[in-house]
């Protein structure tokens, strides 16, 4: 490891340590904000692991997340909680693999459309199944506190960062950078492009499902329209792109400001959240095509490269 990597590792460890202390300081409003930030950090960072290099925009987060919450909802009485999280991860990865196999061979448009409707599809099927069995929703009554959920999310975030770092150093990560640049070159360099993409897509699939499984006890009562809210997918896309997908820490730079903004808008102008989403998308496309990370890189280039 180089000295820069060791420094980054130490900084990350310190940052994580500070995050872990939050529930000691406050167990009300700020813990719930911290929880949202931790959740979106996990979701947006894992999303960017796939969508950053491949440029495929996945809107399937809500679908994976919902499958995760239902895993906990259906199993918490019979299985230990940690095994449900693991199980949710497997379901998410499996589902992502199936979606990937069907769509990732084709162009990006097909993928977006497919993932856009995926959450709605699963929601309809679950609603239908519930109607058949006569239930409406599920009660998830556990003794898991908000602080515990928060800690689990922080641990998951650490795992996501570690995974991202390892992928970045692996052949798979390198293959994906090549695919992102030029898929034809990738294939003619011996890369099985479809396989690489499907493998990588399983990461955000698994992570989002695990996040859903962890968060389920917080909702207490889950029903399809809550577990599969499409808004979640869009929030994740915006946060990741706003921060920038070029770096591992990029999405975090989008998650923190956007979560705070979202909280304040949705508590003050609850009807304007859709408008906020829309304007954020437009802001990203027209003003920040590479996110805050790209903006920072440009500024840095202007400072250091001003002479040449």
């Amino acid at each position: 490891m180089s000295s820069v990597e060791i420094r980054n590792l130490i900084l990350t460890a310190i940052a994580l340590g500070v995050c872990i202390l939050l529930p000691m300081a406050d167990s009300g409003y700020w813990l719930s904000i911290g929880l949202s930030i931790a959740m979106f950090t996990v979701l947006a960072t894992s999303w960017a692991l796939f969508s950053g290099p491949t440029h495929y925009i996945s809107l399937a987060t809500a679908a994976f997340f919902g499958v995760g919450t239902y895993t906990t909802g259906l199993g918490f009485e019979t299985l230990p909680f940690w095994s449900l999280v693991a199980l949710a991860g497997m379901f998410g990865a499996l589902m992502a693999a199936l979606v990937g196999l069907a769509t990732l061979r084709l162009s990006g448009v097909y993928f977006v459309i497919f993932t856009l409707g995926l959450a709605e599809l699963v929601r309809q099927v679950i609603t239908w199944a519930q109607n058949q069995s006569g239930q409406k929703g599920l009660y998830v009554l556990t003794d898991i506190t908000e602080a515990m959920i928060y800690w689990m999310l922080i641990a998951l975030a650490a795992a996501v960062y570690l995974t991202g770092w390892l992928i970045g150093r692996s052949r798979l990560g390198f293959a994906l950078r090549i695919i992102g640049d030029d898929e034809t070159v990738a294939a003619h360099s011996g890369i099985n492009t479809a396989r690489a993409k499907v493998l990588l897509f399983m990461v955000p699939g698994a992570v989002a499902a695990m996040t859903g499984a962890i968060l389920a006890p917080r909702y207490v009562y889950i029903e399809p329209s809550l577990a599969f809210t499409p808004m979640l997918s869009f929030q994740v896309v915006i946060m990741a792109l706003l921060g920038g997908t070029g770096r591992l820490w990029g999405p975090l730079a989008g998650v923190v400001p956007f979560t705070l903004l979202w909280e304040s808008i949705s508590s003050n102008f609850p009807n304007q959240t859709t408008l906020l989403l829309g304007l954020s998308f437009l802001l990203i496309v027209y003003a920040l095509p590479r996110g805050f990370v790209g903006l920072l890189d440009r500024l840095r280039q202007r400072v250091t490269g001003g002479v040449s």
């Binding site: 390198f174 950078r177 090549i178 992102g180 640049d181 030029d182 034809t184 070159v185 360099s189």
Partner: peptide
């Protein structure tokens, strides 16, 4: 066809 986001050496390593 080169890989624009990479430097010369990484293009060859590809």
């Amino acid at each position: 066809r080169l890989l624009p986001s990479m430097n010369v050496r990484d293009n060859v390593i590809a």
